[in-house]
Each structure stands twice: as C-alpha cells, then as structure tokens.
Amino acid sequence: MLRAQLRRQAQVGTKGTAEARMQGLVVFSVAGQRLAARTDEIGGVMPWPGATAVPSDTPFVAALVRQEKRCLPVFDLAAKFNRTMHENELLCLIVKHIDGPLAICIDSQVPSLHMVARSSMHYRVGSDPDIAGTCVADEEELPIINLTTLGVSSIRPAR
C-alpha cells in the first residue's frame, strides 16, 4: 500500500516537473502578424462585436466594444505594428490587462494553443516593452507579446 502510494507520488512529481518545463502559449494573428502570448494572459475569444470610437489621446486606445453589460477598451494592435485589418469576419481577443479587461481585434483565424518548452522561449529586454522576446511554436519563431501590460510604458521583468 505504502509502496503504491510512493510510486503514484513519484509519477505525479515527474508529471509536475514536466509541466513546469512547459509553457502554455496562444498563437494568434493581427493583420497577418503572428504573435504568441501566455495563456494565463487571455480571458477569452468572441466574434468581433464592432467598436465605438472614442476621441482619445492615448496611443492605440481609441475605441470601446460591448461585452455583455459592460464596455471594454480596445487596444489597436494592428496600428501598433503599422498594419491594417482587412478581413470582414474578425475576432475579439479578451486580455487580462493589469488595468482591467482589454479587447484586441484579431484575424478570423481561431487562436491555437501550444505547449512550448520553456527552453525554447527567449526573453530579452528590447526597445519595445510590449514584446517580451521570442519563442518557437511548431517550428515557427514568434514574438511573445506582453498582453497584461500592453500600452503601459514600463518594462516588465522577464519571467
């Protein structure tokens, strides 16, 4: 009985260690630009509901979308990358931003979930604080975007 318990615990421990070496990433695209983000930074995906413009001085934040009974601010990620959204059927990515939920308009291609070895993720501090580094998912090197601090002009330490 005790031996069986110990064996089970050892198996769980091995699994836990393996999970600790992996990082869940969501890969999505914005006007053709493919990006990766940590799964725990994403609150959900829904059809793009259409936005209400807000006369704003804040860079890339100039619209609202309705989600249930509330309105969420929209971060224009396409504009940040100097791109233009062309598709008609777009999706809305809900981000768990440090200042509250935030919406991003993304391409209609449904975001995909990837478990990536942490060793394949390369964090680096660059000129853009919204980009944490790069990772390799399905043999494709992608920029990792910091969704929780998007638009906040502070550099978050690499995790």
């Binding site: 209400t52 006369p55 704003s56 001085d57 804040t58 934040v61 609202l64 009974k69 309105c71």
Partner: peptide
C-alpha cells in the same frame, strides 16, 4: 461606467464615463 483606466490621455479630462443605450454607447 467610468472611463476605463487604459485611457490615459487628455480624454480623461474631457469625458467622465459612458453608458450603453440600446443601439449605441454614449460618452
């Protein structure tokens, strides 16, 4: 609803918040 904190510029002086009508969002 107050203006979400992600709006950080001069719009915070100009706009107090918003509410949703049936067919529109009013600032």
């Amino acid at each position: 609803q107050p203006l979400p904190p992600q709006f950080r510029g001069g719009e915070r002086d100009r706009l107090l918040g918003l509410f949703s009508g049936t067919a529109y969002v009013a600032l």
